[in-house]
Simulated scan of single mutants.
Amino acid sequence: MRAPTGHQYPLRLESEGSVVTAVITEVAAGIRALEVDGAALVETFAETSSPPGAAGIVLVPWPNRVADGRWMLDGEPQQLDLTEPAKGNATHGLLRNTGYRLLEHEAHRVLQAATVFPQHGYPFLLETTVQHELVPDGLQVTHTVRNDSARSAPVAVGAHPYLRIGDVPTADLVLTVDVETRFLTDERQIPVSEEKVAGTDFDLTQGRRLGDIAIDHGFGGVRVTDGRSRQTLDAPDGRRVELWADENFRYLQVFTPPAFASVDGPRLAVALEPMTAPADALNSGEGIRWLQPDETWTLRWGIRRCQAPSSDFGAHLPSIKLGS
């Protein structure tokens, strides 16, 4: 029986005394597994399953949601297919169920491509690639998007990894998110306003234990230092996993489902989703990149294992639930 996520591409790199392995999927160019020296850095799901909670998939040509699947292009209404019918949204772009074409596969990397063809609500032709490349401390992901349309096309990119640190319970990990704002949303998780996080319960810049919070929010003002943003998970034993992204990714979604369907059964998990635009960006225009005909956009992010300074761990606030 074929896997629901298509062909599985195993990757392996032995370098600098470490062994890094991963499994990348044909469908949605997804990350199904990533380990450094046998310790998982992402939530893994079974080969016989579809990605639970969109785990590891690529989000193009928009991340997150479009309200009613409806937006305006040069004064003309555009109607996308509703892929989140319960909330009346189009969600996670147009490639989440697409099988990518294999371009190159080596022991430590795989390069895949997919086309976004003109369709309901998105009358543009895009050529995209995704390269997953192992490095000594983790994984680097490189995206390209080329506009093959005759006119400029609105584009945003995102990804949907769920991070972990080996067998450490997610509830015991400390999440640090270096952002300036968060989006307030309606009941369909569509932004209605934006506020500063400093001094609020949503300020995660000093670290919060994941067992003490429940959250599904978009954040803006992602801080970039030396060309990269950095969001981290810290374990009590000093291990750290970092989600990094280049300066194109100025938005982040944080999601902590209490019953993620992992290979070990339902468990608390945490998705850290780098995004170049927030939810409903086709309507707000915020973060949208208008690619000119024949223009190519290249952007990168990754996941790495690193050691946390001992003074970083344990900056906890009282337990709260971070609701919408």
Rank of each mutant, 00 (worst) to 15 (best):
G218I: 10
L163E: 09
L322N: 10
I213G: 04
Q79M: 07
P4W: 01
R228W: 00
F260V: 06
K196A: 12
P309V: 10
P118R: 13
N248W: 00
G285H: 07
V20D: 04
L102P: 03
K87Y: 09
L80C: 09
G221C: 05
G38E: 08
G323S: 14
L243M: 14
P318Q: 09
V224W: 01
R208H: 07
V179K: 01
I215V: 14
L163G: 06
Q112Y: 06
L204D: 03
E247M: 05
G38T: 06
R289K: 14
R182G: 02
G138R: 02
A198Q: 15
L134Y: 10
V20M: 06
F255Q: 14
D216A: 08
A308L: 09
Q206E: 11
L126W: 00
A28T: 04
G56D: 07
G93E: 06
T176V: 14
Q189W: 09
N283E: 04
S324D: 11
F183I: 04
Q119A: 09
H132L: 06
D68P: 03
L73Q: 08
G221K: 03
I57W: 00
P236R: 15
V192N: 09
A245T: 05
L11T: 04
G227K: 00
G323A: 13
Y162N: 11
D216R: 14
V174M: 13
R12Y: 05
P61V: 15
L80K: 02
R223K: 13
T115W: 01
D226V: 03
T129Q: 14
A107N: 13
R146H: 05
L95I: 15
T91H: 03
S193P: 01
Q292G: 07
P278S: 10
L204G: 04
R267T: 13
E295K: 09
L34Q: 06
A22P: 03
M72L: 13
V177D: 02
A107T: 15
P51V: 02
